[in-house]
Design a protein around this nucleic acid. Structure first.
Lengths: 102, 102
DNA sequence: TCCATATATCGAGATATCTCGATTTACAGC
DNA sequence: GCTGTAAATCGAGATATCTCGATATATGGA
């Protein structure tokens, strides 16, 4: 849990929005039939929703992954990203611990 | 509670450290006798502890104040800064609400 | 009023972040 | 192998942040 790294990753409205959208698969177009049983959302869908370039979203997802906030899984040509709920909770706990008294 | 603004204020190790130090007055030199009954720490003490320039610390304290994380009170030539515990808790609650499922 | 001290503000150079388009890599299917 | 699609990486210009020293403002005391 690198608090500094996580905070700087979250210090961007688009990355926070992506993390928010990833709470619910229904925020994205339905998965292809052959991906029906896979968790996560592929980069192209996230990109379309966010309205930024493919390269930007790819690197944003890389940052979110480095910070441990998402998990990625490759299936064929597709990379699927999903939230790491445990890591997100761990970040919030660490932030509380640092910020709150005593 | 402006989450974006608060996060970017916290996206700096020195500002987070200051907020941490302010948990305990004992992290700073003892107050002058004439300030014994006042809450908070003056800029010069914070500056000395942080080891950055006076102007930098003054503007950092301004940012922390703008973000609502600290409260300032002027007494004579001195400005005393102290944590706003309620606002800090409010930030953590807002962060949880945005980040956590559902 | 004049001076000293505490803090705030200003202007600027160095560094980091944002975001893009172009290119590269990885993979699937023919 | 060749082609097409998905994603990752690269290089760069625009913008923001960091941090400083210099200056301005506020206040208290001689």
């Amino acid at each position: 849990m690198d608090l500094s790294k996580t905070i700087s990753t979250l210090n961007n409205p688009v990355r926070r929005q992506i993390l928010f959208w990833l709470k619910d698969r229904a925020n994205f177009p339905p998965a292809l039939p052959e991906h029906a049983d896979l968790e996560g959302v592929c980069v192209a869908y996230i990109q379309e929703k966010a309205g930024l370039s493919q390269s930007t979203i790819s690197s944003y997802m890389g940052l979110l992954k480095e910070a441990g906030l998402v998990i990625s899984e490759r299936h064929g040509q597709f990379t699927f990203y999903r939230r790491d709920e445990d890591a997100i909770r761990a970040f919030l706990n660490a932030a509380e611990k640092e910020l709150l008294e005593p």
